[in-house]
Write a protein that binds this DNA or RNA. Structure first.
Lengths: 337, 337
DNA sequence: CTTTTTACTGTAAGTGCTTACATTAATAAG
DNA sequence: CTTATTAATGTAAGCACTTACAGTAAAAAG
């Protein structure tokens, strides 16, 4: 049932080494032999055993994709928006993908090492939410495995890709200001995340530049899911009744915010404008369609995978930044007199 | 750098076989030895090489998850809603997950066999969208690999899980009729899918039972994405101006439909009621929040993974059906006089 | 026509691990 | 005390493959 090169060799009266070489395209095999071997291999339905190849020193062609354990609601937008393009590029490069959700909170030392070695991973991609502060990234560096992450370059065999979050924060804020908004709330994500700091920094900069003051009651930290957006929005408008716009650090929270506002009878964008961040597919179909900042998951995912492939070809790691794009839809109103 | 059982054996002056047995808990090893070995293994940072283990006849602990290639938009709700729970259960069972998007359209014979053998997969899960009509499932059967799919049991080592789509179709239609709707459009998914036939069948049954006639111009086939929902909705109301409700065979199309209706100035649910199917996370945050049928991805995913684990323990395959739950939100209006 | 090259193929070792079988030492039975 | 048991460990083969090295026959050079 299971066909090995041995079977091919026997059928053809050759040595296994010859068959192996014929199949791998090593030099020094007669063209006729190669042809025969390939024909016979197909005929018998030979499929190489990667496990054995690995043991004999070849690479596993296996890439691990690591991402923070799925949210309670079972939704991790980054994951599923990024994965398709990553996977596609990797597949073209002949790699397979094995996925590892990681519970960052109780990350145990050496876990990554274990995973990498057990499965003989060739490289890793760390999806957003895993940051330089997490041990897992440091471990990747210390075992020197080619890795791409969505933050900063850590170590030699590492590339990083990121969207210019600060610029994104600026874009959305400038749009709001162009439309006459002056009292603007901000629903941020978890405090410690780099992208959150950056998104807020961009927002704050533009406010400053336009001489708009801004107090801390106008910023609330959620945790990136819909529910937290709801809660934050409610608090925000309760504490700041004169608010005309809310900037959210991701789309999910924006959805929650809009929903909560609707529940309170506030119309978006007539009463309050709301913006998102990410440009998830769904946001086009919201009501109103969400104005948001898109960093094109497809572009980023593709690039990330390409960067890993480069790393695997012994190229040096580097940092790549993509500039986000403002997607103006209907959730922002013009309130200039 | 790379620690093997040989290293442990050498350090301890034992034979590799003893070390192997000590580590695997085979009988016939002195407790003291076991302890020593385990201690030394930890000390040296030993990590078993699964490739080698496999070659020596152990299972790979690798499960392949197969799903239809991601949509152009990069979104495959089934995939990401199901994956978390599947992965979690599998992980607890000590399995790793390798993912395979498959282009059903140009599925080449023996591809599955290749994947399975190359990576020595222990079992497979076929996500929704891969049906009995697809060669890949037949192939799974012919190579007799334990498999769970979301349709029908195919072969001996196969379990199947499904939501009762017909019942779901009934539920949503009954709700509509209770609310006084009589002229109802239906946006279905791809014609050949079993679940689509079923959803429609449930819908049609209830119409019949209530003496409501229904003509073919009231049914349009989309392809499950938002855009197709938009197009279908437009056609539907153009061709049936007196329509008061639209049943959609999935949430994504419902989102598109609502969006398109809004674009035409039709209010949901005031002018037209719209229902979805799936119960995606996002639908709670739509405006209006979508009334839909939920088959609880979490429950299904968990169950699917458990079924595979059972199969792996040599239990027989079987079929499991979950009954969907109606989620009434705000996208259906009561139009009874 | 002998010697050197070249082209192809075979031999064998090694990869990390498991396991059937053989060996030895310790214990129980006679 | 010898012999049969048993417990613990070692030996070695095998898993599917790669690759350095060796061998052989044919072609080129002398």
């Amino acid at each position: 049932m299971k066909v090995t090169i041995k079977d091919i060799a026997k059928e053809l009266g050759l040595a296994v080494s010859t068959v192996s070489r014929a199949l791998n395209g090593s030099y020094g095999v007669h063209p006729n032999t190669i042809e025969q071997v390939k024909k016979k291999a197909k005929e018998l339905g030979y499929i190489p055993n990667l496990g054995a190849q690995q043991m004999a020193g070849k690479s596993s062609q296996l890439i691990g994709i690591f991402f923070p354990e799925f949210d309670i609601e079972g939704v991790n937008p980054d994951f599923f928006e990024l994965l398709p393009s990553i996977q596609e590029v990797l597949r073209e490069g002949g790699k397979d993908v094995i996925i590892f959700p990681v519970k960052l909170a109780d990350y145990r030392n050496n876990l990554l090492t274990e995973w990498v070695r057990k499965r003989n991973l060739e490289g890793c991609i760390f999806l957003p939410g895993i940051t330089r502060e997490d041990n897992i990234l440091r471990e990747a560096q210390s075992i020197n495995i080619p890795a791409v992450n969505f933050g900063k370059v850590v170590g030699d065999k590492c590339s990083a890709i990121g969207s210019n979050s600060r610029e994104g924060g600026r874009m959305i804020t400038e749009l709001l200001i162009r439309n006459g908004h002056k009292i603007i709330g901000f629903i941020n994500g978890p405090d410690h995340l780099f992208i959150c700091k950056e998104r807020y920094a961009g927002f704050y900069e533009v406010l400053q530049e336009n001489g708009i003051t801004h107090n801390t009651s106008q910023v609330i930290h959620g945790n990136f899911n819909g529910k937290s957006g709801e809660d934050a929005a409610i608090r925000l408008i309760n504490e700041n009744p004169d608010l005309t716009a809310i900037v959210c650090a991701n789309d999910l929270m924006a959805m929650g915010a809009i929903s909560a506002l609707a529940g309170k009878g506030a119309k978006v964008p007539a009463d309050v404008s709301v913006t998102g961040f990410d440009g998830l597919y769904y946001t086009a179909y919201m009501n109103p369609p969400l104005t948001t900042v898109n960093h094109s998951s497809e572009r980023i995912g593709t690039k990330a995978a390409e960067m890993l492939l480069e790393l695997l070809n012994d190229r040096h790691g580097y940092h790549h930044t993509v500039t986000p794009i403002l997607i103006e839809r209907k959730s922002v109103s013009d309130i200039r007199q």
